[in-house]
């Protein structure tokens, strides 16, 4: 197998715990904040362990350059970008091939949820900045971007939730960290519309039997439903808090 020379690193200990103490099917804590970038039409900040991401949505707005506009729907554009200081060794700020591919797959993970037909000749622009990377950045980006889209009031069929599945020391694990990605056997980024049961991102990098893959997908599906609840809570939070404040203020 690949990385056999690195097998000295124990990714699952004798108690079945992972490097950071999690069980295989345990997610890191996810914090989602809505609407912190004031200039954007919608925005979100997601913290998943040490993976930290800002997402902003601009639009629907006029398309520049104009020839890209479509007469029957909005175009969705996405830029996934890592800050130079987000990784151990400084990364050049110029977009890498990896970032270009990830921008594409993130866009394709989000677009199925957006009701693009409502905005002909317009563009919906999604910007994702990875501030600190510790695995699963593309999934956390999708979680953040989908909340940012909803908070911009853009009509969507569902939110898109995302998580990664890995295989380390022959065990399938949920929500892969950087070290598990580097030394593990498999990385499987996954996104879906949880209420519609539609998978919108599926990538696999590593060897799996089809039965294992089936298990990985059902693990990911379950996790996405939990993430959806967190996205929902975060979106409602700012309105619910205000409502509470007003009702309590009314009493005094």
């Amino acid at each position: 197998m690949l990385n056999t020379k690195n097998k000295k690193i124990v990714l699952i200990d004798s108690d079945g715990r992972r490097v950071d103490g999690r069980r295989p099917d345990e997610m890191r804590d996810i914090k989602i904040k809505v609407g912190i970038l004031e200039n954007a039409d919608g925005s979100a900040y997601v913290e998943q362990g040490n993976t930290k991401i800002y997402a902003a949505v601009y639009g629907p707005r006029e398309v520049h350059p104009r020839h890209l506009a479509l007469p029957d729907r909005a175009i969705v554009r996405c830029r996934y970008h890592m800050t130079p200081f987000s990784v151990e060794e400084r990364k050049s700020p110029a977009p890498t091939r990896r970032e270009i591919e990830l921008s594409k797959v993130i866009r394709e993970a989000l677009t199925p949820a957006i009701v693009v037909e409502q905005f002909p000749f317009s563009s919906i622009d999604v910007f994702v900045e990875v501030i600190n990377a510790d695995g699963s950045t593309r999934c956390a980006s999708i979680v953040a971007a989908s909340v940012a889209l909803a908070s911009a009031g853009i009509p969507m069929r569902d939110l898109v939730a995302a998580c990664s599945i890995g295989k380390v020391d022959s065990v399938l694990v949920l929500d892969v960290t950087d070290i598990e990605d580097k030394y593990g056997e498999v990385d499987l980024p996954f996104a879906m519309m949880p209420n519609r049961g539609e998978i919108t991102l599926l990538q696999l990098d590593g060897v799996l039997r089809l039965e294992e893959l089936e298990k990985a997908i059902s693990m990911a599906t379950k996790a996405c439903k939990e993430i959806y609840e967190k996205q929902k809570k975060a979106l409602k939070e700012k309105y619910v808090e205000l409502r509470k404040a007003i009702i309590e203020g009314g009493k005094t």
Partner: peptide, 21 residues
């Protein structure tokens, strides 16, 4: 289909968006 407030009138359920273009 959007973040908003629910309004039900008889059999019709609608959502009034809280944000949007």
């Amino acid at each position: 289909m959007a973040i908003g407030i629910v309004e039900c009138k008889k059999e019709v359920i609608k959502v009034v968006p809280l944000q949007g273009p």
